[in-house]
Write a protein that binds this DNA or RNA. Structure first.
Lengths: 199, 199
DNA sequence: GTCTATATTTCGATAGAC
DNA sequence: GTCTATCGAAATATAGAC
């Protein structure tokens, strides 16, 4: 009974998701501010008024996309929280980084949209108090790199490794013609090297 | 005769620069699209109409800020162009990276604004044909990492190092309470390590 | 669920007085 | 160089018919 007669709810979710997919694409390409409700609607074959049946505002669409990324981050957060203190977390950093790479790679588009629309997303979290301040991935990593009693050199190295992953993996990255799977492998190797003992 | 009686031109340049400084600040904080001409003008104590005496359009302000960064990039470009081929350039990469760090560090605000407004800047270069496609820093680096016959592993590593510098140095970076000079030193060490022979 | 039509607001830009 | 006043264009959002 899984494949037959979708509930009305499922029906509407389907259109919702089509909207979100197009929005994700346009927000990434043109930016949130330069993408109008009309742009999104016309891509889907109807008018902007119809869109307001599915979402109550433009910001709501962006919020939904943010929540998609937020959900993905929770797995990583759990891995972080399972460790006792800052030192233990730092020790596990290479492993966490590897999971981080997998997560970023599997959701490149979402991450890229997030990165290209930092301003719009900030304004969103400012009005909608949808989380305190640090319950998303970035906040958690930021906390780890700020609070801990780790040596500054280690913390800077960790921060740099995050940036290395982003630049190496994302679609608008600097390297062009390398097959994607190969690129992922090489990024893994690169950041792993950053935490290898130089014995 | 240098310190006395500024020319009318210098007088106006002074106001121009005040506008550009405020714009840089607001574009970084709120984003280009969410910053209105009025926002900028009122920060300086006059109305938006007055601003149009100094700049012919809002995009013109952004363009001017872009040119500031562009000018800084030329030194690095010259260093790159002085080297014969891709292989030689790759060999000199650590040294170029060190100069790159200096340049980014000395112009953090400008770089951050550039990074946070990629979309707006893209639209700018699309209308104003102010350079072909690759005569800015990013384009040059991109060319080096794409065209060359270097091994993919080296190219990915180079790209990652650029991202590492950005994330490590910029004001909205992940590490918080480390003194800036120390942070710069540690970033230098981190990326230098990425190209050390693992003998 | 989608449409047409419209209300409302905001913004970029210009004209012309001072 | 700065002002007031205004135009025109766009965008978000709503109302109500179908």
């Amino acid at each position: 009974m899984a494949a037959t007669s979708p509930t009305p709810e499922q029906e509407s979710v389907s259109t919702r998701d089509r909207i979100l997919d197009i929005a994700l694409e346009l927000f990434t390409e043109q930016g949130y501010d330069k993408t109008s409700i009309r742009d999104i609607a016309e891509r889907l074959g109807f008018t902007k008024a119809a869109l307001y049946y599915h979402f109550k505002s433009k910001a709501d669409i962006l919020l939904e996309l943010h929540l998609r990324l937020h959900a993905l981050g929770e797995q990583l957060l759990n891995a972080l929280d399972a460790l006792p203190d800052g030192a233990a977390r730092a020790q596990q950093w290479p492993r966490l980084l590897d999971e981080f790479i997998t997560a970023v790679d599997e959701n490149r588009e979402l991450v890229l949209m997030h990165q290209r629309n930092q301003n719009a997303l900030e304004a969103l979290q400012h009005s909608e108090r949808h989380h305190a301040a640090n319950d998303d991935i970035e906040g958690q990593i930021r906390r780890l790199l700020a609070d801990s009693e780790l040596p500054a050199a280690t913390r800077v190295r960790m921060a740099c490794s995050v940036g290395a992953v982003m630049t190496g993996l994302l679609p608008d990255g600097l390297v062009g013609d390398i097959p994607h799977a190969e690129k992922v492998r090489l990024v893994r190797a690169t950041v792993a090297d950053m935490f290898r003992d130089p014995a």
